[in-house]
């Protein structure tokens, strides 16, 4: 490869870097409006059924919700650290931090599984007889709870797959201290998922 080709490559990469980050942000904007719609639904029904939302929210386990918040915030830290590591050229730490992020994400989903399991064990799931015999506000609250935490959980699951792919790429050297935009974009996605939970936790668990 002669010199002009190398220069061309470098230039192409620079443009690509800004473009791919912007592309990721555009995707996150659509995600924001998507979750925004769900939060709007929550807000409107909450103003329609304040007492019912209040009472039903008390039925959720606050401690479990708080622990999950800590888990997710810590996973955001390890994700951010993996990017710091790769930029500094510390490939091994970058991989370890990504593994830790996946580990914490799995803990989050495990806790969610336990939580959903307890609710479903009590016959509280969308369309169940126990839930349908409850008041309208309670039905709406639980429906929103399952839909919002469910879709958020799917995002966590997608994040795990994405980070696993990033680990593979880091090990193969595709992601390196010279080219790390994929890892950065995965980080953006992961922090976004964390932000959604930052709002879900007080709105679902702490209003009772």
């Amino acid at each position: 490869m002669d010199r002009s080709q190398t220069a061309g490559r470098a230039l192409e990469k620079h443009v690509d870097y800004t473009g791919s980050k912007m592309g990721m942000w555009l995707f996150l904007f659509t995600e924001l409006l998507f979750f925004g719609g769900l939060f709007l639904l929550y807000a409107v029904y909450r103003s329609d059924f304040p007492q019912e939302f209040y009472a039903t929210s008390a039925g959720l386990d606050r401690t479990v919700g708080a622990i999950n918040t800590l888990v997710l915030i810590t996973s955001s830290l390890t994700m951010a650290c993996s990017i710091t590591a790769i930029k500094k050229g510390e490939t091994k730490s970058a991989v370890i931090f990504q593994l830790l992020t996946i580990g914490l994400a799995l803990v989050f989903l495990g806790i969610k599984y336990y939580e959903w399991g307890a609710k479903i064990g009590h016959g509280m799931y969308p369309g169940s007889d126990a839930l349908l015999s409850a008041g309208q506000g309670e039905i709406i609250f639980y429906s929103l709870y399952f839909v919002m935490t469910g879709i958020h959980g799917l995002h966590v699951l997608a994040g795990i797959v994405l980070i696993a792919l990033m680990i593979r790429m880091t090990l193969k050297g595709i992601i390196s201290t010279h080219d790390f935009v994929r890892l950065e974009n995965t980080g953006l996605y992961w922090h976004f998922v964390d932000i959604i939970w930052v709002y879900l936790f007080p709105l679902l668990y702490l209003i009772g």
Binding site: S76, M79, H191, F192, I195, V198, Y199, F201, P202, L206
Partner: peptide
């Protein structure tokens, strides 16, 4: 107040973690 605190948290995450 809780929404305000959540927004401060979200803002910090966007500002630093999300660069």
């Amino acid at each position: 107040i809780n929404i305000l605190v959540a927004s401060i948290k979200a803002g910090l995450i966007v500002y630093i973690f999300m660069h």
